[in-house]
């Protein structure tokens, strides 16, 4: 496999793990716009243990999950009293504070970053993505998953049904933080360098968009979202210059055309986001879509029942 594809598979796997981390919070109806903060905690705990303590991989990667999960748990208890925009702001502020602390910490290399001695090849992040996906699919298929979706839909009624809404939210938020931490640990070892500038607010925004545009109703959504928004920009990297050449040739310009700015890809991501919110705000993959695809023959009969019921 070429280095180009190895790079893409690695970042895709890391993004999938990251998206699942945010998905678990979003699945309970909590928008987590602090993803970059949690990924940074995971990345720096793995990097620090590896660089300063000389710990091996099988310690640093689990440590990145554990440290981030515990911090997420401690943070979730007070912050999940907040709802709606307050919660979004709170998680966003958390990420900014984390990054701010790292910049000011000499032990973590400050603005310079930390080199990570141990390198991992692409199979490790891919294994991480598979594990994260299995965990999420499993949880969502259990009674806990049912309760998670109920809390997302209506927290007042869930409470009256005997669901401990706060515990469900805190548990999912913390577990999600752990997965975001894992994505950070994988990132640190895959790129053998961590730099605080990587974990900026734009990253938090992107990962939330992966989840929401992919669809937060089923665990398929984050995977599809992360894959779509990691792979499509790569396709556009080749496609956009060709399109520009084509457009230019319509206006009679021949020969060498300077390739378009990288920013065009983000403009397109923005346009897709706005259009998705207008036309399909529940995301690409919905529960009904999964249901329909997994039971292709049920659909007709269910329509028949509905007609009978209405008649």
């Amino acid at each position: 496999m070429s280095g180009y594809w190895i790079g893409i598979i690695t970042i895709l796997a890391i993004n999938i793990v990251f998206a699942y981390g945010i998905f678990l919070a979003v699945a309970t109806g909590q928008l987590n716009l602090g993803g970059a903060g949690f990924q940074a905690i995971g990345a720096y705990s793995a990097a620090w243990l590896s660089a300063e303590m000389g710990m091996p991989l099988y310690v640093t990667i689990p440590a990145s999950i554990l440290v981030t999960g515990l911090i997420g748990f401690a943070f979730a208890f007070p912050i999940l009293r907040l709802k709606g925009v307050y919660l979004v702001l709170g998680t966003f502020a958390f990420a900014e504070v984390v990054v701010g602390i790292i910049i000011n910490s000499d032990a973590l290399g400050g603005a310079m970053g930390l080199p990570v001695p141990d390198y991992i090849d692409w199979p490790v992040p891919v294994a991480g993505a598979v594990v994260a996906a299995l965990i999420c699919f499993y949880i969502m298929s259990t009674r806990l998953g049912l309760v998670v979706r109920a809390v997302h839909d209506d927290d007042v009624v869930s409470d009256l049904m005997g669901v401990d809404v706060r515990m469900v939210r805190v548990a999912m938020f913390a577990l999600g933080a752990g997965l975001a931490g894992l994505s950070g640990g994988l990132y640190a070892h895959a790129y053998t360098y961590v730099e605080v500038q990587t974990f900026n607010s734009a990253l938090s925004i992107y990962v939330l968009l992966y989840v929401l545009l992919g669809g937060a109703q089923t665990p398929w959504g984050p995977m599809v979202g992360a894959a779509f928004f990691t792979l499509v920009p790569e396709l556009l990297r080749n496609l956009l210059p060709q399109m520009k050449v084509a457009v230019m040739s319509v206006f009679g310009v021949e020969g060498a055309v300077t390739p378009p700015d990288e920013s065009w890809r983000f403009v397109l991501l923005g346009v897709v986001t706005v259009l998705m919110m207008v036309f399909r705000s529940e995301g690409l993959v919905t529960r009904q879509l999964v249901e329909r695809l997994s039971h292709p023959f049920r659909r007709r009969s269910s329509n028949a029942t509905q007609k009978e019921a209405e008649a």
Partner: peptide, 19 residues
Amino acid sequence: DSTEHAIPLVSSLGFLLIL
């Protein structure tokens, strides 16, 4: 459901990227 307030918020994130 409880994330519906997110819809305009997410759109505004999209516009942030575009502009």
